[in-house]
């Protein structure tokens, strides 16, 4: 037995543990953030459950909320998760064009989701008479879906920053998310003003297209990301899949159960 092994045996020393995420500390940081964020959603969902099952007069969600529209939104987020994993697979192959294209599709999915959510909220408020202060149903519904919507908005900006960085480094990572944020807000305003889901989808797709065009216009010959350097894309993907995962739970507990 070597001296080191004897020392470990006698003094109970543990061998040095390899890092949880050998690729990068950023990935571990994102996992810790997601664990904390999951607790926020967990607290909101637990509070929702306690309020709902303590109130025998709670309305049946399917009688107020549009299940078909929300199922479409769920499908949209699942599709955007697939385009996100395809973006990561593309850059792992070193294919920059496909990375940018799939990032655009993911951003487009997120913006359309927000457009449809704006449509749903406006329909509930203006046609169904629901509001955050009317009853516990309205309060929990708008807080839960609104908190998730803020995460989708953050995700759209995050992915736009990655798209901008893939196109033109730091300056792209600043300009493209600002454009994306402004266009997303524009989509929400236009959808709310017209009260049309189709206008929401159209304006979101148009906005995502403009974000992609801005990234293409800024495009530098060489990209920061490559088959050997794609940690940031993976970290952004983790966040986006988390947003999808949370929506799967919100959709089930708030809309279906």
């Amino acid at each position: 037995m070597s001296h080191a092994a004897v020392a470990e045996h006698e003094f109970g020393l543990e061998p040095a543990e390899s890092p949880l995420t050998p690729e990068s500390w950023g990935k571990l940081g994102m996992w810790v953030f997601l664990a904390a964020d999951a607790m926020s959603f967990g607290g909101l969902l637990a509070g929702y459950g306690a309020l709902r099952y303590g109130d025998p007069t709670w309305p049946r969600p399917s009688s107020i909320l549009g299940i078909q529209l929300t199922a479409l939104m769920t499908f949209l987020l699942i599709c955007s998760s697939v385009t996100m994993v395809e973006a990561l697979a593309a850059i792992r192959r070193g294919d920059r064009d496909r990375l940018e294209w799939f990032l655009f599709l993911t951003i487009c999915g997120g913006m359309i989701f927000l457009g449809l959510q704006a449509f749903e909220w406006n329909k509930l408020i203006l046609r169904e008479g629901q509001s955050i202060s009317r009853n516990n149903f309205g309060a929990t519904f708008f807080i839960l879906t609104g908190f998730h919507g803020c995460h989708v908005f953050g995700g759209v900006c995050f992915l736009s920053a990655i798209l901008g960085r893939a196109s033109r480094g730091v300056s792209g990572a600043i300009i493209v998310p600002i454009v994306a944020a402004l266009l997303t807000i524009g989509t929400l305003v236009v959808t709310s003003a017209t009260l049309s889901g189709l206008v929401g989808i159209g304006s979101a797709a148009l906005g995502a297209g403009v974000v992609y065009m801005v990234a293409r216009l800024l495009r530098a010959p060489a990209s920061v990301y490559s088959a050997h350097n794609n940690n940031e894309v993976e970290i952004a993907a983790l966040y986006w899949h988390f947003v999808d995962l949370i929506w799967i739970l919100v959709f089930t507990f708030v809309y279906l159960v």
Partner: peptide, 29 residues
């Protein structure tokens, strides 16, 4: 949710300790 976490977030291929970190919030909830 498990499918998304295991395959899209690659939790199935990560170290087990990381999976414990990810599962802790679910248990706490």
């Amino acid at each position: 949710a498990a499918l998304v976490a295991m395959f899209f977030m690659h939790l199935a291929a990560e170290k087990r300790t990381l999976a414990y970190i990810a599962l802790t919030p679910a248990l706490l909830c």
